[in-house]
Amino acid sequence: MQQEYRSKSYSHIIRIILILIAVVGVGVVVRAMVMPKSFGEFGHYRGDAVVDEINRPIRNGTNASCLVCHPYIRKMHMEGVHKTVSCEFCHGPMADHVKDDKVIAHLPKKQGEEIKILCLRCHNQIIRARPKESIKMISMPKHLEDQKVRIDHNCNQCHNVHAPLMWVNQAKAIVGAGEDSK
């Protein structure tokens, strides 16, 4: 075979090394271009991510924020036994209702059977996993039978949903019965 070669004995090694350096160089340049500026500001993460999370729109208000605009319900709700129940649990989040200080849509009011299901989510005695001291529990339709009421009645025919004992106490006052009687 020929003894004369066009390339030097080591030129392929040089080329390999150059290619590797070029690849690493391209990598470093690309990294500098795509790295977010705030990365590493507080730790091994993008500092702006914290700001992004803070700026997430708030969707639920609080009861206080609902009652600012709904004073009639406010009086009933804040004086009744349901004052710890969230408005938005039954009606939906505030963000679906108010945007930029304007009403954008009306929140649904529960009707009919939906009301009974909602009440029983908390007050159903048949689900025995509830701590007995914290909440009054009844079972249906036994509760209606006990109260001598027709069993096709819905909860909100005797109980104002915003202040459940309001009408009950008023009825007792009319009848002249004491607070403790059934």
């Binding site: 729109p57 708030i58 208000g61 609080t62 206080a64 600012v68 505030m94 108010v98 930029d100 200080d101």
Partner: peptide, 10 residues
């Protein structure tokens, strides 16, 4: 700061 009117702090 918030899109939804005045929400008192908690």
């Amino acid at each position: 700061a918030m899109d939804m009117g005045n929400i008192p702090e908690q």
